[in-house]
Design a protein around this nucleic acid. Structure first.
Length: 875
RNA sequence: GCGAAAGUGGCGGAACUGGUAGACGCACUGGAUUUAGGUUCCAGCGGGGAAACCCGUGCGGGUUCGAGUCCCGCCUUUCGCACCA
């Protein structure tokens, strides 16, 4: 043994292992129908410049599963790519005057190196970046297919406008009324743009959630809520004769309701400020116009809106009740949303809380048309009584009185249908996906606008519409719209000069199918080829919970479109989904009197106990003095709070294996992970102990052949634990995805190995087997050090291709066990007893135990016996 | 407001099917080795008690021979959605 082997040096070990793997091209995989496949994928990163700990956690989880499944005999694909379009590149470009393409590609090559230093079992030959024309041309191609099928269309609509990024945001990108990226208050604007009709797939997207047992319940529920299907009726209220002229031809005011049973309780109509009726009425009504303007300017934060005072104004226009013909006044109300339903509601203050509040405010009539089935509710007309919004029995509803909710809805819907003034309808909260972005660094939308022919799709043979890579945005709008070389073109239909569409696609388009392209990234003749049939769908997808709605819903939609075009078989892209938790770190700050709060990195903070035994935290301030800093709890790793951990630095100091081991051990994968520098050291310490144990062992030469029949009981115990660990780790990783307990099990094994006295003749053989199993079971988690140790244990072959051995059933058999003895359910003793002992033997042994006898001081009433585990004596 | 998840030592967490609560690790305490540089090894480590024992998984009830686990009611925290008609 040479000196190098005595001390664990992660740098040397990791260079050796990674060198071996790259020489062997160990992670390049090909389709092999003879072997079961496993497609393991972590969400690809945005090339922001540097990896953060969240990436390390995400990719380590994927890598552990990849290597584990490989050892189970699967043909495993783990690819990697780059979600390379997007705003940060443009922002960086403005700041540094560098084209986004250059910035992005430099980041990619740096981050690729970082990923490689983690020793991930990635097939790099399949790498792709969404900003490559060879990739995004197929976005364009599929967009044209959607256009042909009417799934994509151009229309104007009210959109969310981010005033900072100067771009349109999808509903999903608006969080609490603010842009998801900038946090700026979103404005409403009307703009022509392209939409993908995801709503056509709403039913299937919702229904198929039930067929995704491998997805967390939480994510399925979030998607279901997002799609938000509700069953109800569309009801048309004809305009009253005096109103018809103001509406210029429009005959009816449409509303959507889930409570058609309350139709007879309508005392007013309410429309959104942007509703055509409101606008029509405002033309001759300046105060109303002012009110509408006020509503528009008002806070759009939905949480605010929800608690806002009910405001409104009468329009002076009227509609007729579709069944009674009674005249009903139309109001503009701030609580009606243009974006949901028809932008208008029927006001039923007796049975809707919001309508009730509005009616109180405006002194409108309140009519009761439902009473509770149990009779607990009788009269809502008294103003102090809240609206009764439960289902019940209809009253005061003419021929429809006396019906239960569903009967009433059915009867009302039928009556409306007969008059042509309504029908049952399904409604979704889900909106169509507007994909146009007034941005440079994205995939060009393949459309040409011609003065003569109108909107003309770019013919397939002219794809891709290349994005120029040499532009530098200056922050004022889209540089493509100012680049004549880009937008000047001729019409594909008539050949006359035309203008190319300068909007680019939402980057969520790019990430909606990259996982399929990984199966055939080099295919230049088509979007996908037959290789996709072997690999798709992704068997295990891993990523952050923040993508539970946006990305995962779009990817499901896009995959279904691709299925309908015949490109893939399955409409569901991801069979199993693991949403990993965030990586958090402690936050420490110091607030000088009257000065700005400054943050200290947890690594630089010392914690000790003061005289009173209370913990105090200290750090060295910028001027070299010691400061007492304040602990502010856990938070996301962030620059502004100076609590980030740099993965690069971590790997350089402790090695990738330590980083991997800590992130997998410190918490279950779905939970948040609390960063702990001491915990990292603990991980390093464990690897060192494993390293030393193996080298101390092999230093003395290879052991004798293991003879299972001639072992001492201590040797048999260790051997049982060895094989138990083999089975336990396989179950923990393979079934439960419980990496932390898998690691704990191997730690226990290593502790037991250290305790075995190896003077016996077979002890070294038993220890050897135990060390082999420890090395093998840790291989997916700490691949470098185990790769080297496996060789040290005398194996010529590579550990990563080693098959996971079956636990030896013989070795697991225990002839004597410690049985727990309870008296009245409380632990009172333990008896050593044959594993196969029956109740009679166990009871006799238990009662012979002095400690137990002490508590059995009354006649035995009952004995509960769990074979092999416990006996409970009830007195 | 609606929906979901979670509350276990000083800390991260374990206990998977109702059966020994606290595995494993961190921190801490004591000892040994070494004097070196986030060293290794051994022992201890939920609370109370001299001990026998008693108490203990957010709180209050219940089911059961037996409850961290199941049921009912409450409290707290986190997350998602939010005037959705």
């Amino acid at each position: 043994m040479n000196r190098m082997d005595e001390v664990y040096d992660p740098a040397v070990v990791e260079r050796t292992a990674q060198g071996d793997w790259s020489r062997e091209r160990a992670f390049e995989v090909r389709e092999d129908p003879a072997r079961p496949k496993f497609y393991c994928l972590s969400m690809f990163p945005y090339p922001s410049g540097r990896l953060h700990m969240g990436h390390v956690r995400n990719y380590t989880i994927g890598d552990v599963l990849t290597r584990f499944m490989r050892m189970q005999g699967y043909n495993v694909l783990q690819p990697m790519g780059w979600d390379a379009f997007g705003l940060p590149a443009e922002n960086a470009a403005m700041k540094n005057g560098v084209p986004p393409a250059k910035w992005t590609r430099e980041n990619i090559s740096y981050m690729r190196g970082q990923l490689q230093s983690l020793g991930l079992a990635i097939d790099w030959s399949r790498e792709l970046a969404t900003c490559d024309a060879s990739y995004y041309r197929w976005n364009q191609w599929l967009f044209l297919r959607m256009l042909e099928r009417g799934i994509a269309c151009r229309r104007t609509g009210v959109v969310n406008w981010d005033p900072v990024d100067q771009t349109v945001l999808a509903n999903e990108q608006v969080i609490d009324g603010r842009g998801w990226r900038t946090g700026a208050l979103v404005e409403k604007r009307e703009i022509p743009m392209y939409y993908l009709q995801i709503t056509r797939y709403a039913d299937e997207l919702l229904g198929a959630l039930d067929e995704l047992p491998g997805w967390p319940e939480r994510v399925r529920l979030m998607q279901a809520n997002w799609i938000g299907r509700s069953e109800g009726c569309e009801i048309s209220f004809p305009y009253a004769p005096d109103t018809r002229s103001a509406m210029q031809g429009e005959g009816v005011l449409k509303v959507f309701t889930t409570r058609a049973d309350t139709l007879f309780g309508v005392t007013f109509m309410a429309v959104a400020a942007e509703h055509p009726v409101a606008l029509a009425a405002a033309r001759s009504n300046p105060p109303l116009a002012a009110f509408i303007e006020e509503c528009r300017r008002g806070s759009v934060m939905e949480a605010d809106v929800a608690t806002q005072e009910k405001k409104g104004m009468a329009t002076g226009l009227h509609v007729l009740h579709p069944l009674t013909g009674e005249q009903v006044e139309v109001w503009v109300a701030n609580y009606v949303l243009m974006g949901y339903g028809e932008g208008a509601v029927m006001g039923v203050p007796g049975h809707d809380e919001r309508d009730f509040g509005f009616a109180l405010e405006k002194g409108l009539r309140i009519v009761q048309v439902v009473r509770s089935s149990t009779g607990a509710y009788d009269d809502v007309r008294e103003p102090w009584k809240p609206a009764y919004s439960e289902y019940g029995v209809t009253v005061n509803s003419g021929e429809f009185s006396g019906l239960e909710f569903q009967e009433a809805v059915d009867a009302v819907a039928a009556a409306l249908e007969k008059k042509g003034l309504g029908r049952k309808r399904r409604h979704y909260r889900l909106r169509d996906w507007g994909i146009s972005r007034q941005r440079y660094w994205g995939c060009p939308i393949p459309i040409v606008h011609c003065g003569a022919c109108g909107e003309v799709p770019v013919p397939d043979e002219q794809l891709p519409v290349l994005l120029p890579e040499n532009l530098v945005p200056d922050g004022s709008g889209n540089p493509l719209a100012k680049s004549a070389a880009f937008y000047e073109c001729s019409c594909p239909q008539c050949g006359k000069p035309a203008r190319r569409e300068t909007d680019t696609m939402d980057t969520f388009v790019d990430s909606s199918w990259y996982f399929l392209r990984f199966t055939c990234p080099d295919q230049s003749a088509s979007m996908l080829d037959q290789r996709v049939a072997y690999w798709a769908p992704v068997d295990q997808y891993i990523g952050g919970i923040e993508h539970a709605i946006l990305h995962l819903l779009y990817a499901r939609f896009w995959t279904k479109v691709m299925r309908d075009i015949g490109l893939v078989k399955s409409g569901e892209p991801f069979t199993n989904l693991l949403t990993q938790g965030m990586v958090l770190n402690h936050i420490y700050s110091y607030q000088p009197a009257g000065g700005r709060r400054q943050y200290f990195n947890p690594a630089d903070v010392d914690t000790r106990k003061d005289e009173a035994g209370k913990e105090v935290h200290e750090a060295v301030g910028p001027d070299g003095t010691r400061l007492r800093v304040q602990y502010e709890g856990l938070g996301k790793m962030s620059k502004s709070e100076n609590n980030g951990v740099d993965p690069q630095n971590l790997v350089e100091r402790f090695g990738a294996d330590t980083a991997r081991l800590f992130t997998m051990f410190a918490a279950p994968p779905e939970q948040t992970l609390e960063w702990s520098d001491e915990g990292v050291l603990g991980a390093l310490r464990f690897i060192r102990r494993l390293w030393t144990a193996v080298h101390e062992h092999v230093k003395r030469g290879l052991p004798d052949r293991l003879d299972a029949m001639s072992l001492t009981s201590a040797e048999r115990d260790l051997r049982r634990l060895t094989h138990h660990t083999l089975a336990k780790v396989r179950d923990d990783i393979g079934r439960r995805r419980s990496f932390n307990t898998a690691i704990a099990a191997v730690m226990e094994l290593l502790n037991a190995i250290g305790k075995l006295d190896d003077s016996g003749s077979q002890s070294r053989a038993v220890r050897h087997e135990a060390l082999e199993v420890a090395t093998l079971t840790l291989a997916p988690i700490i691949p470098h050090v185990t790769h080297v140790l496996w060789k040290a244990l005398g194996h010529a072959g590579a550990l990563l291709d080693e098959r996971w051995p079956e636990a030896d059933r013989e070795a697991l058999v225990q002839d004597a066990i410690d049985m727990v003895v309870q008296v009245n359910g409380k632990l009172r003793g333990r008896i050593r007893i044959a594993a196969a002992a029956d109740q009679g033997i166990a009871q006799a042994a238990a009662l012979a135990d002095e400690q137990v006898r002490k508590f059995v001081d009354k006649p035995i009433r009952k004995v509960v016996f769990v074979p092999g585990k416990l006996i409970n004596i009830v007195v």
